[in-house]
Every structure is written in C-alpha cells, then in structure tokens.
C-alpha cells in the first residue's frame, strides 16, 4: 500500500506550485486557477488523512471546501468581469490603487 507520506509530498508539491502561480503570474484568471490548485492540494491531503485515520469527517470537509470553492469562483469571476469592464484589462499589476 501507499504510505500517507507520498500523498503528503504530492500535496505539498501541488500546493507549492499553486502558490508559485499566484505569485508569479499576472493574469488574474490564472492566479485564480492557481488558488484552485492550492485548494485541491489541500483537499487531497484531507482525503488522504481521512483515509489514514479511518474518519469520514475529512471527506465531508472536502465536500464543504468544494462547495465554498464553487461559490468563491462564482463571485471571483464576477469581480474579474467587472474589473475587466472598467479597465479593459485583467493584468493584476495594473490594479495598484492601494499604492501607499
């Protein structure tokens, strides 16, 4: 059987790649997709540990995460649409209104 540490390693790699995507890409949609990747890495670990501990709660939690992710994507994409409508761009570096 496969040790949990393998799943942990895979999950860590995927999470790191997601984080890297958030940090290095400028396209808001791809940043968004990277966030989804990070969520997925977390989901994988949840399920792996649920299996390791023989507890279903982990799976239930993943279910909620998926639901929340769906909601988040709906709102987030709507925001991106609005931003694009105002600025004709989704380059995240152009949104620097918060500059101090």
């Amino acid at each position: 059987m496969i040790p949990v540490s393998y799943y942990f390693a895979l999950s860590a790699i995927l999470f790191s790649l997601g984080a890297l995507g958030v940090l290095i890409r400028r396209n808001a949609i791809i940043i968004f997709m990277s966030v989804e990747l990070m969520l997925n890495a977390a989901n994988l670990l949840f399920v792996a540990f649920a299996r390791a501990n023989d507890a279903l709660s982990g799976q239930v939690f993943v279910f909620f995460v998926i639901a929340v992710a769906a909601a988040e994507v709906a709102v987030g994409l709507a925001l991106i649409v609005v931003i694009f409508r105002n600025r004709q761009s989704i380059d995240i570096d152009e949104m620097s209104n918060l500059k101090g």
């Binding site: 984080a19 958030v22 940090l23 290095i24 400028r26 940043i31 995240i92 570096d93 949104m95 620097s96 209104n97 918060l98 500059k99 101090g100």
Partner: peptide, 16 residues
C-alpha cells in the same frame, strides 16, 4: 509606504 506598492501580488508575496 514603499511596501504598499498597491500590487496584489506583492501583498500575496508578503503573506506567503
């Protein structure tokens, strides 16, 4: 205020 670049990715980098 130099840190407050206004760039979201900067903030994200700091959080990270």
């Amino acid at each position: 205020s130099l840190l407050q670049s206004g760039y979201v990715r900067n903030y994200a980098l700091m959080v990270f």
